[in-house]
Design a binder for these strands. Structure first.
Length: 658
RNA sequence: GGCGAGAUAGCUCAGUUGGCUAGAGCACACGGUUCAUACCCGUGGUGUCGGGGGUUCGAAUCCCUUUCUCGCUACCA
């Protein structure tokens, strides 16, 4: 009966806040695949969970005046509620603060250290606190964190490193010989070209700069840094043990059949994770699928705009299954999908209400009207029946084929083609005409029987994607969902069965305008509430920015720097670069060419005519092939916005700044 | 700058190894129908298949070139 085990995971959600619709997409996708595989006869284990350590959480907890553990308990609870609301059938919800997980991570760290894959070194570089990342000078963007654009601080930290390069060749070999390993394939090239082929850097796997993490048990000033902690959830959650005492469950389930993750963390799952596993001597997961994101069409989603869509908002508007249908249907395989209130209403009305809901409703209504709800196969068939039955019974295999290659949206389309065929069948057979004459009553009965039977098959195939709806349909037809094995056969519905006499509307049609207005009102209310609670805090934060203090310098040090007022007389974009502007700056009688990374903040036109503060005696450097003979000084806020320093009163170009 | 992906009907996209009048869904229009949630069924388009050039009997599909968009990555005083 069982086709074997199938172990599927999602990424574990970071517990720094409530996940938006993009994150919720992943769990629904994983759930649909898991449910589908179960119906196909696999012994499925579906794991999800939360990633709960790190400095960001430590800081957020501090702001909230609670312990990190209290903080993550809250957020993990919210996430779990949301996943449950979305009707996800996970078998295990792992938290990286689980005792079992923490203990194993410590053991894994020790083992890797003992066998020489992890060594103690020092990390010297520029550190971005919010991102918890070290960067080299060359990685910075505008001298700022390339991830978030915020200020980085020079820092030196004793740290443990993992020797990535040691396993690089084996990994390259594996990727080349397992073309299905990284999905979609376009991501494979990115990993090869950008990381593997140029040569892997060793990975820093510990931190001393914060405490909220799993301590290195033989050196407790260190906590184990994110990836070794987070990625290992996939094995600790099912009972891995470093000492060889892994559980039976682990023996059965590992290696995972599918890691479902967002495309943003493909690198960690296709490079670091396989290498960790090689070091542990464990087999690699069979497939990593980096799914695209669902983006909001109507302008960028941002908390400050107050237009972030959360899954539970959508559920309030449309119901769980409509939201599941939407995210699954609208998500293409390789490119990002778009979500908007208008699109949602369109899908709901045309697919769910019209095609599916109305079909079930009209079928039940006719059964009641003509036969008092009793559905009988009288065996009076006609030519049209054959085509209906063929379409219906062939759907299962088509759906399976699509799911085999993870084309979930296409699988749904196949199921809806079945329902559309049913609607067409009604027009072809014209039951209302058959009902007029007593002689055609038996034919009419069979027509309705065929419809009910087909709908049950459709509902059964739909179950993994829209479980509640599938149940509601068969409940109204007074039967139960079919096993997949039965879905390729017609005539399974018990003849003589009686359907409900009170059909309920599965999906009510909605008016686009009303929905958009309601959504806007909701956002408005949220913005107002947000302003009320966060304004005072935000204002206080904006007033003062603290940055890392540098070592004291002498006057001589300062005197080495020469600042003058410069006037920008010409400015153009540096074509080869995304961030640079090249300005001709008049300083006294000479004109200096200065390249600055401020394209994102000023247009060349804006620059011309400005009087600015220039560091003039900086050693010239070549940037993007252009010589830069100084530096324009800017102020910068916490979000990385730049403002040029200009003299407060009119000053001639060349005036000394001292 | 390097690597990669993409540009097809108003919108979202399919188009296998080049082959007959280029497709689907939605939207729109018209016709049919009335069991049903103003629903369902049918019919319909003028798409320069991003631009230009080439190979070929024949190209959306192969080659070259060009423009634009996007992803990853590098430089960024």
């Amino acid at each position: 009966m069982s086709k074997g085990k199938y172990y599927i995971t999602t990424a574990i959600a970071y517990t720094s806040g409530k996940p938006h619709i993009g994150n919720s997409y992943e769990i629904v996708l994983a759930d649909s695949i898991a449910r589908f595989k179960r119906k196909e006869g696999y012994d499925v284990f579906f794991q999800t969970g939360t990633d709960e350590h790190g400095q960001k959480i430590e800081l957020k907890a501090e702001e909230a005046g609670i312990t990190p553990k209290e903080f993550v308990d809250n957020v993990a609870g919210t996430i779990k509620d949301l996943w449950n609301l979305m009707d996800t059938s996970y078998d295990n919800f792992i938290r990286t603060t689980d005792e079992q997980h923490e203990k194993q991570v410590q053991k894994i760290f020790k083992k890797l250290y003992d066998q020489g894959d992890i060594y103690k070194g020092a990390y010297e570089g520029l550190y971005c606190t919010p991102c918890e990342s070290f960067w080299t000078e060359s990685q910075l963007v505008d001298g700022k964190c390339p991830d978030c654009g915020r200020e980085v601080k020079p820092a030196k930290e004793e740290a443990y490193f993992f020797k990535m390069s040691k396993y690089a060749d084996r990994l390259i070999e594996h990727i080349n010989t397992h073309p299905e390993f990284i999905q979609p394939v376009s991501r494979k090239n990115e990993m090869m070209n950008n990381f593997l082929l140029p040569g892997l850097q060793d990975l820093c796997v510990s931190r001393t700069s914060f405490k909220w993490g799993i301590p290195v048990d033989f050196d407790d000033r260190h906590v184990i840094y994110v990836w070794l902690d987070a990625l290992t959830n996939y094995i600790t959650g099912i009972g891995y043990d470093t000492d060889g005492n892994s559980t039976e469950q682990y023996q059965k389930l590992w290696p995972a059949d599918l890691h479902l993750i967002g495309k943003d963390i493909i690198r960690f799952h296709t490079i670091y994770w396989p290498i960790f596993l090689m070091a542990l001597g464990e087999p690699l997961p069979k497939q990593v699928f980096g799914h695209p994101w669902l983006l909001q069409g109507d302008g960028k989603m941002s908390k400050s705009k107050g237009n972030v869509i959360y899954a539970d908002d959508l559920v309030d508007f449309f119901g769980v299954d409509a939201v599941r249908y939407f995210v699954l249907h609208e998500m293409p395989f390789e490119n990002d999908g778009v979500i908007s209130w208008e699109l949602l209403v369109e899908r709901l009305n045309s697919d769910l209400a019209n095609t599916l809901g109305n079909l079930v409703n009209r079928t039940i209504s006719m059964s009641n009207k003509y036969f008092d709800g009793v559905v009988t196969d009288t065996g009076v068939s006609a030519d049209v029946d054959a085509d209906l039955k063929q379409v219906v019974t062939e759907t299962r295999d088509k759906v399976c084929a699509k799911m085999e290659v993870l084309r979930v949206a296409d699988a749904l389309t196949e199921i809806f083609a079945l329902f559309k065929r049913c609607n067409k069948y009604i027009d072809e057979t014209e039951p209302w005409v058959l009902a007029k004459s007593e002689e055609s009553k038996d034919r009419l009965a069979t027509v309705l029987y065929n419809l009910v039977d087909s709908i049950v098959t459709g509902a059964s195939l739909l179950e993994p994607f829209m479980p509640k709806t599938a149940e509601r349909i068969v409940a109204q037809l007074n039967t139960s969902l079919r096993a997949f094995e039965e879905c390729d056969k017609a005539g399974q519905y018990p003849s003589g069965n009686r359907v409900t006499d009170k059909p309920e509307i599965l999906f009510a049609r909605l008016d686009v305008k009303e929905v958009v207005e309601k959504a806007e009102a909701m956002f408005e209310a949220r913005r107002a509430a947000d302003t009320a609670t966060t304004e005072p805090v935000a204002a206080a934060e904006e007033a003062v920015i603290d940055i890392e203090k540098k070592a004291e310098i002498s006057y001589e040090d300062f005197d080495k720097l020469q600042f003058q007022v410069g006037e920008i007389i010409a400015c153009e974009e540096v074509k080869k670069s995304k961030k640079l502007l090249c300005s001709q700056v008049k300083v006294g009688s000479e004109v200096k060419q200065i390249v600055s990374g401020i394209k994102a903040h000023y247009t060349p036109e804006e620059m011309v005519g400005k009087k600015v503060m220039v560091l003039v005696n900086l050693k010239p450097a070549t940037l993007a092939g252009i010589v830069s003979e100084g530096m324009l000084l800017c102020a910068e806020d916490a979000e990385g916005k730049l403002a040029l320093m200009t003299p407060e009163k009119e000053m001639p170009a060349g005036a000394e700044i001292c």
